[in-house]
Simulated assay, not measured.
Amino acid sequence: YCGPFTWDVKRLLASLYLIGHSKGFSDREIEEILRICVESYLKKVYEFCKQKNDYFALTLKNTSGKIKKLLNETRIKSHVAHLDSMTNIENYDRRFIRSKIVQDIDDTTRTDILNAFETYIKSVPESKKTSGYSEGRKDYKVKDVVARSSPGVGSAGKISYSILIEGPTETLENDIILYMKPAQKSAISYVIRNPELENYFKHDGLRTVLCSYAMQASTPKWLGYTSIGSIPCLVDEVTAHAEDLDWDDINEFNDVIEVVGYLGQATAKIHCVADSDCKSTPNDVACLPFSIIPRQVEKTIRDAIRGNDQEFINEMVEFGMVYGALVQRDHKLFFELFRNKHIPGFEEQ
C-alpha cells in the first residue's frame, strides 16, 4: 500500500520474463514483451494526467483478442450455476458439498466463525449492506459453514472458511457464498519499517480493504474484515463473474504482446486511482493517514520520471530481465535442495 510505484512495475516485468522464458521466446523477444508492457503503462499514466477523473476499465469495447475473450467468458457465467458447483440442495435448502478439501468444522470453530461474521458485518458500509435487501433488514442468515484448504500461492497450506448466507429473498438462487481467510501481511512491510504506518495498519484485513477502496472505482459489495481470535481476516464474496488470466492458452508472440499492453494499462489504472481524494473511501476511516498518499498519483509519477521516459523504460526492462533470470536461478537452487532433502525441517518428509 505504501511503497515505490516502481516496485509493482518491476515485479510485473520480472513475472513476464518468467512467462516468456517458459514459452520458449528468445531473450530479444522477451525484452520486447517487457518494453511493450512498460511503454503501455507510461502512456496510460500520462493519459490520466490529462483526465479530469480517474476512471478507466478494460471492457468489451476497448479490448480485443485474448482479453476480450476472457471478458466474454466471464460475462456468460451464471450465479446459479456457480452456486450449484459448490453446493447441493438438502431438505429444500442449500448446503456446501463436502470433499477432501471442503470439510465440516466442530462446534467451537463454528461459534468462532459466527462471532467473527457478526464483527465483519459491521465493517461493511451501510450503503452496501442495504443494497438489494429490504429496508431496515439487519440480520443475515448463515446457512452453512465449512473449512476449505486455500489454493492461492500466498495462502497455500492455510485454512479459509466458506460461509453460505441467505440472499435478499428466500429463493435459493439468491444465496451468497463468502470466504473468510487470514489476511496477508504486506510484503513491503518486511522491507520498509515505518512505526507510524504500523501503528495505523495493525489489522491486515483493514489494510487490504483500504487498498481495495483506493485502487478500485467500484468496490465489491461484500468486502470487509474481521478477526478469528487474534488472527486478522479478510472477507469477500466468491463470485461467478471473476476469472484469472490463464497463460496456458496464450502462446503466440503477437497474442502475448497484445495482452501485456493491457496489463500495462491495468497497472497504471491501479496506481493512478489510488489517490488520497478517492471518492469511494468510507467516511469511517478518515482518521487514517491519507496525507501520505499523493493527491494525484499520476502527476507524482510523471514528476518523478521528469521527462526521462526512455531512461525509465530501459531501467525497468533491464531489471525485469536480470531479476527474472535471478529468480530462475534461485528456484533451481531451491528445487535441488528440496529434492535432496537439504532444507532443515523437510529431511524426513
Results as ranks from 00 to 15, higher is better:
248 D>V: 06
261 G>T: 09
240 A>I: 02
215 M>L: 07
324 G>N: 05
324 G>K: 05
329 R>S: 14
241 H>E: 06
215 M>H: 10
312 F>I: 04
227 S>A: 09
308 N>V: 04
248 D>E: 05
211 C>T: 12
249 D>L: 13
227 S>P: 03
283 N>D: 15
209 V>I: 03
262 Y>F: 07
256 V>F: 12
282 P>E: 05
311 E>G: 11
248 D>S: 12
240 A>S: 04
250 I>V: 05
267 T>D: 14
295 R>E: 10
325 A>E: 10
310 Q>N: 15
215 M>N: 07
302 R>Q: 09
241 H>P: 00
261 G>S: 09
280 S>G: 09
209 V>Y: 00
226 T>Q: 00
225 Y>C: 03
290 F>I: 07
255 D>S: 11
238 V>P: 01
329 R>Q: 13
226 T>E: 05
276 S>F: 07
212 S>C: 13
235 V>I: 02
251 N>M: 09
219 T>I: 08
291 S>N: 15
259 V>P: 08
291 S>T: 15
290 F>M: 08
317 V>I: 09
211 C>R: 09
267 T>P: 12
294 P>N: 02
328 Q>I: 14
225 Y>L: 00
246 D>I: 08
325 A>T: 05
240 A>H: 02
225 Y>W: 06
216 Q>C: 09
325 A>N: 12
314 N>R: 14
285 V>A: 12
286 A>I: 09
298 E>T: 09
307 G>W: 06
234 L>R: 00
222 W>F: 07
324 G>L: 03
275 D>S: 11
238 V>T: 06
240 A>L: 01
213 Y>A: 02
218 S>V: 15
322 V>P: 09
261 G>M: 08
244 D>Q: 03
323 Y>D: 02
272 C>A: 07
229 G>S: 00
227 S>I: 02
213 Y>M: 01
253 F>T: 03
251 N>I: 06
256 V>M: 12
301 I>C: 04
237 E>Y: 02
282 P>H: 06
312 F>R: 04
260 V>Q: 01
240 A>F: 02
293 I>V: 05
260 V>K: 05
241 H>M: 01
248 D>H: 12
318 E>L: 13
272 C>M: 04
318 E>Y: 13
305 I>Q: 03
216 Q>S: 11
242 A>S: 11
311 E>W: 08
229 G>R: 01
325 A>D: 07
319 F>N: 04
329 R>I: 12
325 A>Y: 11
318 E>H: 14
307 G>P: 06
289 P>D: 04
220 P>R: 06
285 V>G: 12
254 N>T: 11
280 S>R: 14
323 Y>L: 11
261 G>R: 11
313 I>M: 00
240 A>D: 00
297 V>Q: 09
304 A>D: 13
276 S>D: 11
237 E>L: 03
243 E>A: 04
318 E>Q: 14
276 S>I: 06
268 A>I: 05
255 D>K: 08
257 I>E: 14
238 V>E: 02
272 C>G: 08
264 G>F: 06
250 I>E: 01
325 A>Q: 13
